[in-house]
Amino acid sequence: MTDVIRTFRLTKHYDSRRVVDCLNLRVQRGQVYGFLGRNGAGKSTTIKMLMGMVQPDSGEAELLGEKVSALNPKTRERIAYIAEGHPLYNWMNIGEAVRFGRAFYSNWNDILVEQILDHFELSRKQKLRQLSKGQQAQVSLALAVAPEPELLILDDPTLGLDTVVRRDFLESLIQIIHRKGRTILISSHILGDVERVADRIGIMVDGVLRVDCSTDHFRESVKKLVLDFSGPGPESVDCPGLVNSWTLGSQLELILVGYDEAQRTAVESLQPKNIEIVDLNLEEAFIEYTRGRKRSLPLFAREESRHDQGVDDQGIA
């Protein structure tokens, strides 16, 4: 299979902060790649570098076999991009936006645009500024797929949409994916959205691509272990594949990747009373993988100390 998206040590700094760090990303033809990460993880900056909107400090990116820095308009015709927030010219009505978009492409599927607009019950006479966010997303989608692109790059396309509109948008996206085996890179910080469409995911953490595997593999790899101790649990643990750990009284919770024999031995060496292995769903696995070190909030700490002093809140209304 050929790589439709390929980056080599792509790096970007904003001031002294490295927002994308030596990113080597490969997306193969026909793949739907979920590009995940928390806010500020570097997803949007990466996508902007792929689209030539942001210049990398070092490294290179290729789309459809051509360097992004020298992408010719013919190749660009085969790529669609929906930016975060679905920016369009709000003074246009839908018909004008369609005419404006069509002017740039030699291949433009008017029937498909009509179908999508009809499906979403959008009239060509409606002004874009009068549309809801969800409707603007639907227009963006229609304009993006009309030139029958081989590659779709979607930067958090469901951001700000309500649950129902998000579901509609994603279902339309699934239908589009099934046409002609398109390659799609979709970024999001909502894993549930990506889970429905992506067959492979990449997770950015602080500008670094920490995960790049199939969705199922990721789900199966991340485990939560709950260790019970008779006294207070150990403060720190040294274990291969350890992502996160925290202590809750006499319990120690560990998030591990690729739980195997070596990890089991390391965990058993702590001599816990009991070990419980918890399977996580994809959303939980993503949250546990990307969240920072878990700490108790001061409020909770205060509540605990009040309970320690024998204060009973049950009587307070």
């Binding site: 902007k48 689209m51 909107m53 015709e77 930016a83 975060e84 920016p87 740039f104």
Partner: peptide
């Protein structure tokens, strides 16, 4: 200000 550069500059035109 309106982020419309992302739309405009991703058209297939130099």
């Amino acid at each position: 200000g309106r982020d419309t550069y992302y739309y405009l500059l991703s058209r297939p035109i130099a």
